[in-house]
Nucleic acid binder design. Structure first.
Lengths: 110, 110
DNA sequence: CAGGCATATGCCTATAACGGTATATTCGGT
DNA sequence: ACCGAATATACCGTTATAGGCATATGCCTG
């Protein structure tokens, strides 16, 4: 998860990922479509690959990269774990705070 | 979205976010629970705040931070946009590749 | 209004990571 | 076996960012 987030945080890497949504692509095509230098693309793909976000399939001397569904499932379920945050009525901020205050005063703090 | 991902990519920042899942906390409590120095916590909170991931509410000289539901909703829906990736049968990697190859050969490539 | 908390900010240093260019590697075709 | 295409790796310089420490700011209490 950590690696996933780090990988996606880099703008060009995120662009690559978004491009790959269209389907598997060889490195050279990514280079052209995103106007990046080939070595940078290879490096970014390396990071994405280490993070488990993409995988490769060699075809002749080309290497096709595609997204790895599993990584996105995991990311999705991590984000889901925050669902309660926004489903529980969170606009009661002040009420919650007053609660906390009260508890502190009562028994000398947590 | 970019800012969101960058913010979450930093390990200590992610820790803060996960801690805040338990509810709003003043800076000092985060400092203690996560064993970080106060200035770093303030700085990380600044970044999280700029990214819209958290918001503050001052109470006396304390400042309570809490997660901002909206940010997580947006993150969730970004991840959701990848759902088709894993719902479409993606194990047909090779088939897809053969398709691509064919097209290239036929009309001199895209 | 002085003193003390809680938090934020400024400045510095170190390190990680990106981009650039050159080069190595792998594989297919002749 | 050699050559060229596609991709990966190595090395370098630069920059962004995190951590550390000192200090400023805001607010409550006596």
């Amino acid at each position: 998860m950590d690696a996933t987030l780090t990988a996606l945080a880099e703008p060009n890497r995120k662009r690559i990922v978004e491009l790959l949504r269209e389907g598997p692509q060889p490195v050279g095509e990514i280079v052209v479509k995103l106007r990046l230098r080939q070595p940078q693309v290879s490096k970014h793909l390396r990071v994405l690959s280490d993070a488990g976000l993409v995988e490769v399939r060699p075809v002749a001397q080309q290497r096709f990269y595609r997204l790895r569904p599993q990584a996105f499932q995991e990311l999705a379920s991590w984000v889901e774990s925050y669902r309660r945050i926004w489903e529980e009525r969170m606009d009661r901020f002040d009420a919650v705070l007053q609660d906390l205050q009260r508890k502190e005063k009562n028994h000398g703090g947590n």
